[in-house]
Structure formats: structure tokens, C-alpha cells
Amino acid sequence: MDWEAIRLSLRLATLTTLALLALGLPLAYWLAFTRRRWKFLVEAVVALPLVLPPTVLGFYLLVAMGSRSPVGRAYEALTGHTLAFSFEGLLAASILYSLPFTVQPFAAAFAAVDRGLLEASWCLGESRARTFLRVVAPLSWAGILTGMVLSFAHTLGEFGVVLMVGGNLPGRTRTVSIAVYDQVQAMDYGAAGRTALLLLGVSFLVLAFTYGLRRAQRKPWTLI
């Protein structure tokens, strides 16, 4: 078992989830409550990673992060190394790639909150931020948790983008899904089988947890 790759994947998935939590909450809030006419365009952009081939996203990211692009050069001037083929580059790619897995459950949960409760809170003089913290968030905790769990799991499982942007560097960008690919090519089927089984188990647990949450959400009083 390639523990180095497993540690790296866990670190990547955790940081991606945290970044997406910070980014996803306001974005999902806006999507759930805005009345802008062009909202559907933003929704389409957020959902793009669901349908785009990973190679397309990987190609664009590679070009954008490479040492020939202005972004890549600016980053290199600041840090001394390129953004492509680095852990930070991988993190940026994962955040983009898992965006819909976070934002969509968040937005769906927010939209399901009874608008009357929000208006009541506002009429009682609470600010939007406090209303969000005291009313919206507690009522949509299952959706928030689902979004976080899904983005974590999706980051663990991503392959194409990571391979193109990360370049399979041990200890830096070789994630666990790429380690399996490597082990198969090296005909080390024993190691590949063990790693694959671990990923299968984790994926199943994550999905069971998510669907379990959905069940719990229908009778929230038993869990809060």
C-alpha cells in the first residue's frame, strides 16, 4: 500500500473541502435566494465540471498554470516554483473540479428552507448574516454536510485532471487514484488490488453516509 499517496490524497481532499466550504456557502446562498435573471448562467458554469471531460479541464488548467502563461509566471516569480505539477496547483484544480459537488447540495438545502422563517427573522431585526447563522444553516445542516462529504470523496477519486495537471510526482502530486494506475502498469496487481479495495470501501461508506443523512433529514427533530 502506498501510504505516501494515501496521506497526500487525504490532505488534498481535506483542504479542498475546507476551501469549498468557504467558497461554496456564499455562492450557494446567492444561487438559492437571488432573483437575477441571469442566475441560470452562473448555475451552468458551476455545473460545468460535471459534464466536461477531465481532459478538457486538465488541458485548460495546464495551459493556465504552466510557465508560459501570465498566471503561471507570476506564481513562479512569487514562490520560485511552477503552479502546475505542484500540490498547490492540484489543490486549485480540485477546488474547481469538485465545485458542483459542494455548491449544488448547499443550494438545494438553502432553497428548501421555509422563506417565511427567514422573513420572520428579518422582521425581528436580525441581520442577514445572523439569520443565515441562526436560521438557514441549522435547518440545512444535512445538505451542508452532504456537500462537504461529496466534495471530499470526489477529490479522493479524481484521476484525469490530477494526472494532467499534477504529473504523478511521488510525495507531491501522486494521489491514491494515480498510485493504483501506477501499480497496475508496474504489474504489481497485489498492491493495486489492496489500494483499489480501500478506495471501494471508502467510497461505499461515504455514499452510505450521504444517503443515511438524506433519510435523517426527513425527520430532523430526531437528530438536532
Binding site: 516554483h81 504529473g167 511521488p170 507531491r172
Partner: peptide
Amino acid sequence: LALTYGSSGNFYAQIVNGAP
């Protein structure tokens, strides 16, 4: 030694793009 295996053409493209 941190070893990565692949096709030489792929490595060439990655090195041109700044692979460390």
C-alpha cells in the same frame, strides 16, 4: 530518488510546461 514513469514524449511536454 522520487521516480515517475511514463512515455518520453509526455515527459518532454511536462518539462516544457515547468514540471519540477
